[in-house]
Design a protein around this nucleic acid. Sequence first.
DNA 1: GATGAATGAGTATTCATTCAT
DNA 2: TATGAATGAATACTCATTCAT
Lengths: 217, 217, 217, 217
Amino acid sequence: MASSLPLNPRKNPQQARSEGLVAAILEAAAQVLAEEGAARFTTARVAERAGVSVGSLYQYFPNKAAILFRLQVNEWQRTSSMMRRIVEDLSKPAHDRIRELVQVFIHSECEEAAMRVALSDAAPLYRDTQETRVFRRAGRETIRQYIAGALPASVPADAQTTAAEMIRLTLTSAGKRFSESPRTQDEITRCAEAMADMFIAYIDALEQRHNTGSGQA
Amino acid sequence: MASSLPLNPRKNPQQARSEGLVAAILEAAAQVLAEEGAARFTTARVAERAGVSVGSLYQYFPNKAAILFRLQVNEWQRTSSMMRRIVEDLSKPAHDRIRELVQVFIHSECEEAAMRVALSDAAPLYRDTQETRVFRRAGRETIRQYIAGALPASVPADAQTTAAEMIRLTLTSAGKRFSESPRTQDEITRCAEAMADMFIAYIDALEQRHNTGSGQA
Amino acid sequence: MASSLPLNPRKNPQQARSEGLVAAILEAAAQVLAEEGAARFTTARVAERAGVSVGSLYQYFPNKAAILFRLQVNEWQRTSSMMRRIVEDLSKPAHDRIRELVQVFIHSECEEAAMRVALSDAAPLYRDTQETRVFRRAGRETIRQYIAGALPASVPADAQTTAAEMIRLTLTSAGKRFSESPRTQDEITRCAEAMADMFIAYIDALEQRHNTGSGQA
Amino acid sequence: MASSLPLNPRKNPQQARSEGLVAAILEAAAQVLAEEGAARFTTARVAERAGVSVGSLYQYFPNKAAILFRLQVNEWQRTSSMMRRIVEDLSKPAHDRIRELVQVFIHSECEEAAMRVALSDAAPLYRDTQETRVFRRAGRETIRQYIAGALPASVPADAQTTAAEMIRLTLTSAGKRFSESPRTQDEITRCAEAMADMFIAYIDALEQRHNTGSGQA
DNA sequence: GATGAATGAGTATTCATTCAT
DNA sequence: TATGAATGAATACTCATTCAT
């Protein structure tokens, strides 16, 4: 569809004031999204919420999609750095890192669920963009590598890639879907446990298949 | 949000004519969705495509959301009956049934992907309805039971429920996500294979855990 | 610039009601143009003036430019048929027909001057369209032929074409420019007289040049 | 309409710096007009192009219209001085001076056509001003006198005025209209020739009418 | 003087839904 | 029953101009 909307910030927020405004707008945008939903996410509402004129809003964002895109990028970065922290902690055994990864990820998905769901609802507005595609692809790659980093080294590279990709796909998509309904802390923990169980069983089976001499596969 | 839109058909399609019209409208709706996307899915376009006046359209559907809802229900029913067929074929061992379930499901998700993605994009329009919630819950339950039906009987009931739910969640959400990008037949098959591997490893581990006498858990 | 706006009427006004609405909208448009000027010519104002909702307006015209285009076409047709009537009245000598043509044209240009000036001001909105170009070219051609029809037959074809084109250009552009300022009837008549004098002198000179045997040219 | 916008420069450009800035702004304005058209002629774009802040722009011009007005005045002055040079060259016979006048004027109109057309498109913005009216009236007068200066002295004063005014009106309006379409050098020359033919025939006829003793008029 | 961030009124266009015919 | 004309609220985005720094 609209695959060429420019999502780049209009000006580099060089000055503290600018950065503050951008932050205020993004904060307001997140609130509007969470409280009013994607359908009522309008530039006017965001500007009003941010205590800024629409004109100012458009000085920092070229269009509505760009605001949503920035919100999404921020989410991705948060997720990504969170994962990196866990995965790079080599003091823990692989299984524990996987378990922690899943727990932290699912819990984090369930935080600010309203906003995240609304952001997903609005995805059609910023999804079909070169920029988004590039960003998303890069994010996918990064996360897959983090996951691969927690897999046993004995698994051959291509099997590792496949498995990491399946785990990434499951983690992110099932995590998102799970977080769409309101959940208690207990439910969240149990869901993450089951998912980690599944991942670990999968990894162990993979390891076994490749370890056992001439292997069965 | 808009949780009280009536999605029920306005009249019981008693006459053949009515049924034909409803079918024509739904067919047209699916086409519009697939070819124009959710953003351009308008009642006027659907009516025109169906060769019907908007007025008539509104005689069979109380509002736009109801059309989308019906489309979604049809998808759910198709999926559900497809699963039932596989799961009830007791001539095959459980593992095979799981593999087949996943293969068929993922392939089916990737068919008519354009329409299904657009239908998902439009979900905010019909999602927050009592009716949808009821239907979805029932569908979830049914599918979970189908999956549970393919799990080994030795696993205790509650563990079985948890596992079936995790598999259902993964299958449907990762399947949907996977189908959002265009895929070759080969890619689809390999994704389904990996997913089935994961599920089977998960099930086997579960079985083992509960079989081994006093078990570790 | 915007060279691809569709200016075609959205629906054929088949019914009397439709025709009435289109006429009402065009009438209102002419009034808004005359009284408020091109800059304040908005679809909302036109609709209000016509006693119609904006929605209805957009059922009969695909966009603002189309309304202006229709107004312009009407002007062109009025001018064209007026010229034809004069030029086809063979009972009068050529000179008289030229004089009458000029008088009638200039007087007509000065009528509804406010609206016509505003319509010209708005020209950038509908000018750069395939449709307008086609229409304008056809109109130019027609008028040139009418003028050629009043020229003496002794002038060779190509000289006749050149002269008719120069007279057309002068008549229409100087007529338009002259009508931009408010004028008394007397001023208008005298301007038309002088212009006709010029045209007739031009035609006579042309005739003479081509009549005098080996001529000077 | 908006007949009271102040178009006067805000400050006398006493300093060299000021003059430079004014010139830079006008140059930038001409470029923006030529390259982007009247609709995209914004103060922001002009300022950016001129390498100046909007604030500075507003120090030298009270509003957007004033920039356009200055551009127009410059055009008028260029035209005017060009005409004066030709008309005051008494070494050439009147006919030749008329021919040259027309040729040079039409060619000059066709130069920078893009900018001139855009400047005309923007005319509604500066046209309805006391200042513009005064300037335009003065310009008209001057040009008419230049033209009168090339007419034969035997024609009585009032007839001369009428004729000069008709020629001025035709020259400027038809010239402008002609230049609105892209033209080859050859087309331009031939148009100017035909126009000069017309003017000379007109002048000769006038002369004859007034020379022939008791004359018919 | 110079800057450029902030303002906010203004506008074209769409679309779900109704209801007179 | 069927039609489709009519409605009008809603919304993204622009731009001339000001004024605090």
